[in-house]
Design a protein around this nucleic acid. Structure first.
Lengths: 94, 94
DNA sequence: ATTAACTATCGTAAATTTACGATGGGTAGA
DNA sequence: TCTACCCATCGTAAATTTACGATAGTTAAT
């Protein structure tokens, strides 16, 4: 990956991490390994649609992935992109 | 620092890093150790006021500091907060 | 005192983000 | 098929972000 794309990727990951609720969701996923939207609704004083929106942004950034687990949807960390983000932040602060 | 403040601090730092221009400014400061606004204006295809605005956000986030070096203003990385950010990101991805 | 150089701030417009309620879509079981 | 449950998406409003040009402020030298 060239420098420009690295910079854009890093900015994209940073943006995903730039909201406390999204940080909390990710931290929860780190502990629980996975969870569904309903679990998060009980954790945060936010509307269901708002949680869903944050999940969508995390998914768009590539940091999480969701799979069907009827009638629920199971979200977990996308290890590939997670590790890529880790490397990029590490490099940046090196 | 308790968990809540750590989360807010991390979100604040992530927000500062969430724009490619600000990432580039920081990377430039890492290489040059310091620079002034004018140097950056030549590096980016952006208006002077826009650069100044990005510098202000980086300063508000605590990642850089500026000192008078008349007739210029010399910006450099705020090592204390920089290292704190580094630790917080490291912890987060641990 | 004036001027020149450098940079912050103001005012503003367009785009994006964040939040909500309401609606819609999909699946499992009755 | 119908219902209940879970969740995404739509529509929307308020707040924030990003960009610009224009203006104001600060310092050094004339």
């Amino acid at each position: 990956m060239d420098t420009i794309n690295e910079s854009e990727s890093l900015a994209k990951y940073a943006k995903a991490l730039s909201h406390p609720t999204r940080l909390a969701i990710l931290k929860h996923l780190e502990n629980q390994s996975c969870c569904c939207t309903g679990d998060l609704i009980e954790l945060f004083p936010l509307a269901q649609s708002t949680i869903s929106q944050h999940l969508k942004e995390l998914k768009n950034a590539g940091l999480i992935q969701g799979e069907l687990n009827p009638p629920k949807i199971k979200y977990c960390i996308n290890q590939t992109h997670w590790q890529q983000a880790q490397v990029l932040f590490l490099q940046f602060f090196s």
